[in-house]
Simulated assay, not measured.
Amino acid sequence: MSTETSRISWRDGRRYLWPSAIMVPMLPFLSYGIVSQTGVEGWWWLTPGLVFVLIPLVDMVGGDDVGNPPEDAAKTLQSDRYYRWLTYLYLPLQLGGLVLGSWQWQQGDLGWVGLLGVLVSIGTVNGIAINAAHELGHKRESLERWLSKIALAPTAYGHFYVEHNRGHHTRVATPEDAASSRLGESFWRFWPRTVWGSLKSAWHLESSRFALRKRNRWSWRNDVLNAWAMTLALFVVLTVAFGPGLIPFLIAQAVLGFSFLEVVNYLEHYGLCRQRVGESGRYERVDEQHSWNSNRLVTNMFLYQLQRHSDHHANPIRRYQILRTFDTSPQLPAGYATMIVVALFPPLWRRIMDPRVIAHYGGDLDQANLHQPARAQLLARYGPRPGGALAAEAP
């Protein structure tokens, strides 16, 4: 079949499923409508219920999508602005939901069930918005990069724009990366390390950029500062509009939102490690074996195909609609929506994931990205590899 014939004959069978991604920021509006009509505040829990309960259940029966678009159709798909607009549309819905949630928090006359539902719903929407920011922030177009910062503003995580692109993608799957979790490290230990480490990394990277150019880092051109300025401006406007009682809500939903991002970071590279090669001792190039993947169809539709993470790291500017899956990538036992919930319970997570990391490295713990405080426990449970470095240190 010729290249031209392939382009004409191949069609994206999921084309009209991709708008699923913008269903999530629409849910708070749906909750508000139902609560207004019924008076049942529990409907404010619709968003977390769909994301953390319904989607995992549907994922179980929705099956996997292991197909890849043909490479000769990739250029056409890449330039199709339909897919681009689906990321753009998330932002006005996200910001509109934040305004709605702020109004309900201050003036909705809600009880604690409704107030907590509003908080968790808006935090969830803004957390998933970081995925839209992730997609936009990797692109070369200036508009998309600025939209990325706007999407990050509600969670006060604008420094992610710098750290993720120039820090995480450089150091991924190494002990030096704050956003790569280690074998034996629980999410609750990972969280403070990655939150603080990512912030420090972003400031260092941006400061170094200005130092290299012999310019003052205290500038509006500093991508950390201008991103944080967006958050400050947004929070000030909302506080003026709805009152100072809104401040706890804004802070809490931001923490929930960026924690949503960090639990995804946690599961994306858990225990995986790039090896040092050659006389220079440099890390090997990032490939499809350095990220956990999932081909679960439903979650991929809701997350702009974030689960095809190996191809994303190998080709960061490749748009979500043409990301590929590889047989050689380590696979999660379920979609991200399910694994996020599992990650919150360390004993369950380790029971499921630790054996998979060990198997990925053929039983050689030396090759994994190890959480050093868990070293003895891992040795006791899985045993050292005969002749390996861990074997030499084992009692």
Rank of each mutant, 00 (worst) to 15 (best):
V118H: 06
I150G: 07
A254E: 03
A156S: 08
S207N: 13
E284Q: 06
E284P: 03
R189I: 12
G387W: 05
Y16K: 02
L183V: 15
T124W: 00
G63I: 06
G13K: 00
L272D: 10
H309P: 05
L116N: 01
H312W: 00
N300S: 05
L54R: 01
V224C: 12
F235V: 11
W18Y: 05
L306T: 00
D65S: 08
I22V: 14
D80T: 06
P25M: 06
A359E: 15
S208R: 04
Y266M: 07
F187W: 07
R145W: 08
V237M: 15
V357Y: 05
L27E: 08
D327M: 09
G114S: 03
L115I: 08
I122N: 01
Q104C: 04
H159F: 05
L110V: 00
T231K: 11
V125M: 07
P386F: 03
Y283W: 15
V172I: 15
Y157P: 03
I317R: 14
R166L: 05
N295E: 13
L54C: 04
T231Q: 14
L212I: 04
Q78C: 09
N293P: 13
T76F: 12
S186E: 04
G388S: 15
Y83D: 02
T299D: 06
L93C: 10
R84D: 10
S9I: 13
L344H: 03
H371M: 05
S9F: 11
F249N: 12
Y304T: 00
H138Y: 11
A74C: 04
R351C: 04
D177V: 13
G387L: 09
G278Y: 13
N68M: 10
Q377K: 14
I340C: 01
I150Y: 02
L344D: 04
V255E: 04
L199Q: 13
A153I: 05
Q321E: 08
F302E: 01
M339D: 02
L86A: 05
M230Q: 14
G363P: 02
R215Q: 08
G114I: 00
A129G: 06
W196Y: 11
V263Y: 01
G362Y: 01
L115K: 15
K149A: 13
L91A: 10
S259D: 00
L297E: 09
S208D: 04
Q331L: 13
K75R: 15
Y32W: 02
R182G: 12
W292Y: 13
M301S: 01
I122D: 02
Y90F: 15
T87Y: 05
F326C: 09
L267G: 14
L27I: 14
S198C: 07
P92W: 08
R140M: 04
L370F: 14
Q107F: 10
A156C: 06
P347C: 07
F258N: 12
I128H: 10
S208Q: 05
L95W: 15
A391P: 08
A211Y: 06
R221A: 09
G245F: 02
S79P: 09
P28I: 15
F235C: 12
